[in-house]
Simulated scan of single mutants.
Amino acid sequence: MVKTLSTFALVLAIGGSALAQEYVKGEVTKVDVKQKKLTIKHEPLTNLDMPAMTMVFVVSEPSLLEKVKSGQAIEFTADRVNGRITVTGIK
């Protein structure tokens, strides 16, 4: 019973953190389709404990690259995926 409750609590904690992800404002400074990367000048990423900066991100889905171009203002989400900071959503 304790093991079951512990597992359930872990699932809720993981799921809750994914749901709590907020979109952050940024500006695309470079799109690298070949490498599947975006360079974004962004506001602080609180979920990753990162200050505002310009950095290169990989994208979780190559189709995200089709939504943006250099100089475009965006709102995006990012998270650690397989140890890499990754753009997971763009609107």
Rank of each mutant, 00 (worst) to 15 (best):
T7G: 01
F8P: 00
F8C: 04
F8H: 06
A9F: 05
A9M: 06
I14Y: 10
G15T: 05
G16Y: 08
S17V: 14
S17H: 12
A18G: 06
A20T: 07
A20H: 11
A20D: 12
E22S: 13
V24G: 02
V24M: 02
G26D: 04
G26N: 07
E27P: 07
K30P: 03
V31P: 03
V31G: 00
V31F: 02
V31L: 03
D32Q: 14
Q35G: 12
Q35H: 14
K36G: 04
K36H: 11
K37H: 06
K37R: 11
K37Q: 12
K37C: 07
T39V: 06
I40F: 07
K41P: 09
E43V: 08
P44N: 10
L45A: 05
T46V: 13
N47Y: 08
D49P: 03
M50C: 05
M50T: 05
T54Q: 10
V56L: 10
V56R: 15
F57R: 15
F57N: 14
V58F: 12
V59S: 06
S60Q: 14
E61F: 10
E61I: 12
S63C: 10
L64G: 01
E66Q: 04
E66Y: 01
K67E: 01
K69E: 13
S70H: 06
G71I: 15
G71M: 14
G71N: 15
I74N: 04
F76A: 02
V81T: 12
G83M: 04
R84V: 12
I85Y: 08
I85D: 09
V87P: 01
V87Y: 00
T88N: 04
T88V: 13
G89D: 05
G89V: 01
